[in-house]
Simulated scan of single mutants.
Amino acid sequence: MYKKKYKCVIMTELEIAVAPMHRLCKKAGADRVSEAAAKELAEALEEIGVKIAKEALDFAMHAGRKTIKSEDIEIAAKKVMGR
């Protein structure tokens, strides 16, 4: 007999809390922020953060270090954010 294989989607927990996302949106001038919007912002910021961390790790390794320093993050953020 033939079995169907179902694609399983695994949701991972966010590393960034949602409550600060509400505060960031309000700081930007929003009166109200939906839970879905706060979660979406958390996901976007987490994705950007991981990209910056990966770049910073590359800079640290290139310098012969295992430790990421603030200078690595600063340079990586400029590269990723295009500043």
Rank of each mutant, 00 (worst) to 15 (best):
Y2Q: 10
Y2L: 09
Y2A: 04
Y2D: 09
Y2P: 12
K3L: 03
K4Y: 05
K5I: 10
K5T: 13
Y6T: 14
Y6L: 10
Y6C: 05
K7C: 14
C8H: 10
V9L: 15
V9C: 02
I10T: 13
I10A: 08
I10N: 06
M11A: 03
T12N: 14
E13A: 14
L14C: 04
L14F: 11
L14Q: 05
E15P: 08
E15Y: 13
I16S: 13
A17R: 12
V18F: 12
V18T: 05
V18M: 07
A19H: 10
A19P: 07
P20R: 00
P20A: 03
P20K: 03
M21V: 06
M21S: 07
M21N: 02
M21L: 01
M21P: 10
M21G: 13
H22I: 09
H22K: 10
H22Q: 14
H22N: 14
H22C: 10
R23I: 00
L24A: 08
L24N: 10
C25Y: 02
K26T: 08
K26A: 01
K26Q: 11
K26M: 03
K26G: 03
K27A: 15
K27F: 02
K27N: 09
D31I: 09
D31Y: 09
R32M: 11
R32N: 08
R32D: 06
V33Y: 03
V33I: 10
V33T: 06
S34W: 01
E35P: 15
E35T: 14
E35D: 08
A36T: 10
A36H: 04
A37S: 00
A37D: 01
A37G: 04
A38L: 04
A38Q: 00
A38H: 06
K39Q: 02
K39C: 13
E40R: 15
E40Y: 12
L41T: 07
L41V: 03
L41E: 00
A42Q: 01
E43A: 09
E43H: 06
A44F: 06
A44N: 07
L45W: 04
E47K: 09
E47P: 08
E47D: 12
E47T: 14
I48D: 13
G49L: 05
G49E: 02
G49T: 12
V50N: 01
V50C: 05
K51T: 14
K51G: 01
K51D: 02
I52Q: 02
I52Y: 03
